[in-house]
Simulated assay, not measured.
Amino acid sequence: MSESTLKYKRVLLKLSGEALLGQKEFGIDQAFLQKISEELEEVHALGVALSIVIGGGNIFRGVAGEKEGLNRARADYMGMLATLINALALQDVLERRGVTCRTMSALEVKEVAEPYIREKALSHLEKGRILILACGTGNPFFTTDTAATLRALELNCEILMKATKVDGVYDRDPKLHPEAQKFEEITFNEVIQKNLRVMDATAFSLARDNHLPILVFNLFQRGNIKKALFGERVGTIIKN
């Protein structure tokens, strides 16, 4: 496979914080982080302009904090800081593998990450660096799904790749319903009509209105990211 056969050359990968748990109940599973870093290194070597938005659910979730009595805005800021911890951990592993990357933050934490500025982010991509984007949009009440969609549009990405624990979008929860049917391809409108939960409504509407396709796939199956980049059938593609 060569770079010329790539279907997507500029992508945004959405990683959930929960994915970094691996086999642990809290925090970051370093063994899993090494595995995902191997795949990201391979993708980078293909010449793909790769941006990553990372969640923080393995450390703290704003919605969960609110349920425990915290002010929602403050809880969301705490969740944003959790994404920064994950971003720095991923950056460290990638750099130890010799992959050039930059962490950019929507909150100002200049001692550990660059502030997110669109023009500078685009410059990093043009120089062949992986971008790790932390702290969501920098605003409370918005999810990292919304941040991922927003950044994908800002950075002219061809597709938003949402890495999850399941291998696509089903007509019902496959964990509760073994007979659930998986969609290989589905439209935005069909997702709405069938009331399927893919991501939050704000993120979904933003992608639909701006014709940004979304690929939902299983992160834990080795090689899925590369297969998707070459246009192989992986997960579920959602588009207009």
Score class of each variant (00 low, 15 high):
E3F: 00
S4D: 05
T5H: 11
T5W: 14
K7N: 05
K9T: 02
V11H: 12
L12T: 01
L13P: 04
L13K: 04
S16I: 01
G17Y: 13
E18R: 07
A19D: 10
L20F: 06
L21A: 11
G22P: 08
K24A: 10
E25P: 01
F26N: 02
D29Q: 11
F32N: 02
L33F: 03
Q34P: 05
Q34K: 14
E38Y: 12
E39T: 13
L40F: 10
L40Q: 15
V43E: 07
V43F: 11
G47I: 08
V48G: 03
L50Y: 07
S51D: 05
I52G: 04
I52L: 12
V53H: 00
V53Y: 00
G56D: 11
G57V: 02
I59D: 15
R61S: 09
G62L: 15
V63M: 02
V63H: 06
V63N: 03
G65T: 11
E66I: 11
K67T: 12
E68A: 14
N71V: 12
R72H: 15
A73S: 13
A73K: 14
Y77P: 11
M78S: 09
A82L: 08
A82F: 09
N86W: 09
L90Y: 08
D92W: 06
V93Q: 01
L94R: 13
E95L: 13
E95P: 08
R96N: 15
V99G: 05
C101H: 06
R102V: 01
R102I: 03
R102G: 10
T103C: 07
A106Y: 08
L107N: 15
A113Y: 14
A113W: 14
E114K: 01
Y116W: 06
A121C: 01
L122W: 06
L122T: 00
H124W: 07
L125E: 03
E126I: 11
R129F: 13
A134H: 10
G136Y: 05
T137Q: 10
N139K: 00
P140Y: 02
F141E: 04
F141W: 10
F142T: 03
T143I: 15
A147Q: 14
A148S: 09
T149F: 03
A152F: 09
L153S: 09
E158T: 02
M161R: 05
M161I: 06
K162C: 03
K162E: 05
T164H: 06
V169I: 14
R172A: 12
P174E: 04
P174Q: 05
K175F: 07
P178L: 13
E179P: 12
E179C: 11
A180D: 08
A180G: 10
A180L: 13
T187P: 07
T187Q: 05
F188D: 07
N189R: 00
E190Q: 04
V191Q: 12
I192C: 00
Q193A: 10
N195D: 01
R197W: 02
M199H: 03
D200H: 03
A201L: 13
A203P: 07
L206D: 02
R208L: 06
R208A: 09
R208K: 12
H211F: 01
N218R: 08
L219Q: 04
Q221L: 01
Q221S: 05
R222Q: 11
R222L: 01
N224K: 01
K226I: 06
F230G: 07
I237M: 06
I237T: 03
I238S: 02
K239N: 06
N240G: 08
